[in-house]
C-alpha cells in the first residue's frame, strides 16, 4: 500500500493562498487506509478550509484516483463544479495527484498529502516501508524480508558494522534487518543462502520513469 501523511494545514493554506474556490478529491484505497484521504478526512478538510474562508465547490472520493480512465469518467459529473473552482486539492498520493493533473489539464492541482513509501499497515496508524520496487525482486531465498527497503543503507551483504545489540545503527528503535534475515534463514535451515555474495544491483533495469505494459498475455517491462 502507498503510505501517505497529511501535510500541515499551514502548508496547505499557503499553497492555496489567493485561491478561493476549492474542489477536493480523496481516494478510496491507500489514502483511505492511511487516514489521509477517505470520506472522513475529505469532510474534515472541507470544514477546516471553510473555517479559513475558502469556498468548497464540491468533493469526491475516487475509486481509486490512480486509475486514469475510470477517474476521467467519474469526474465528468463534476465538470461544472471543477470548472468553477480556482484549484483542486488532492488528498491522495503523488501518483493520484498526477493522474488528476493529467485529467484536469490547466486546472491547478495541489497536494494535501506527503507520499512516504510503499509499505505495510502494521496496525491502526502504524506503517512501515516494505518495498522499493527495485524492478527484479531479490527475495528468492524464501526469507521474505527486503533489505533494500528495510536497511537504511539498502546494502546487499549486511549487516554493516553499526548493528549494535541487534539494533540498527541508523534507526535505533528498529531491529537491524540483516540480523532478522540471518535469524530467519537460520531458523529455516537455509543459512546457505545467507553465505552467498549478493552482487551489486543492475540499475539499468530501473531507468525512470518505469513503464509496464501487459497486453494479450505478453508482458514487456521497463520498470
Amino acid at each position: 500500500m502507498i503510505i501517505t501523511k497529511g501535510k500541515p494545514l499551514d502548508e496547505i493554506l499557503s499553497e492555496l493562498e489567493g485561491l478561493e474556490k476549492i474542489f477536493i478529491v480523496g481516494c478510496s484505497l491507500c489514502a483511505t487506509a492511511s487516514k489521509t484521504g477517505g470520506e472522513e478526512e475529505v469532510e474534515g478538510m472541507k470544514r477546516k478550509l471553510e473555517s479559513f474562508g475558502k469556498k468548497i465547490t464540491g468533493s469526491i472520493v475516487l475509486d481509486p484516483v490512480c486509475n486514469l480512465q475510470k477517474s476521467r469518467l467519474d469526474l465528468k459529473r463534476y465538470d461544472s463544479e471543477i470548472k468553477g473552482s480556482d484549484a483542486v486539492l488532492c488528498m491522495a498520493c503523488g501518483n493520484g495527484l498526477q493522474t488528476l493533473g493529467e485529467i484536469l489539464g490547466d486546472k491547478p492541482v495541489f497536494p494535501a498529502n506527503d507520499t512516504l513509501f510503499l509499505g505495510e499497515v502494521k496496525r491502526f496508524g502504524v506503517f512501515e516501508e516494505r518495498c522499493l520496487q527495485c524492478g527484479r525482486c531479490l527475495l528468492t531465498s524464501g526469507v521474505a524480508i527486503c533489505p533494500l527497503s528495510r536497511c537504511p543503507k539498502g546494502i546487499l551483504n549486511g549487516p554493516c558494522g553499526g548493528a549494535n545489540d541487534g539494533k540498527c545503527e541508523v534507526a535505533q528503535d528498529l531491529k537491524c534487518v540483516w540480523i532478522e534475515i540471518y535469524e530467519k534463514l537460520k531458523a529455516m535451515g537455509r543459512l546457505g543462502d545467507f553465505r552467498k555474495i549478493n552482487y551489486p544491483l543492475d540499475y539499468s533495469i530501473k531507468v525512470r520513469p518505469g513503464q509496464h505494459l501487459v497486453r494479450r498475455g505478453v508482458s514487456s517491462e521497463q520498470a
Binding site: 543503507k153 539498502g154 551483504n157 555474495i197 552482487y199
Partner: peptide
C-alpha cells in the same frame, strides 16, 4: 567499508549512495 549513515554526521541532509557495500 560500507560507511556510516549520513544522518549520523555533520551533513545529515546528504543523499546516501550505497551503490556498493563493503563486499561490493
Amino acid at each position: 567499508i560500507t560507511g556510516d549513515y549520513p544522518t549520523l554526521g555533520d551533513n545529515p541532509n546528504a543523499k546516501p549512495v550505497y551503490d556498493l557495500d563493503s563486499v561490493g
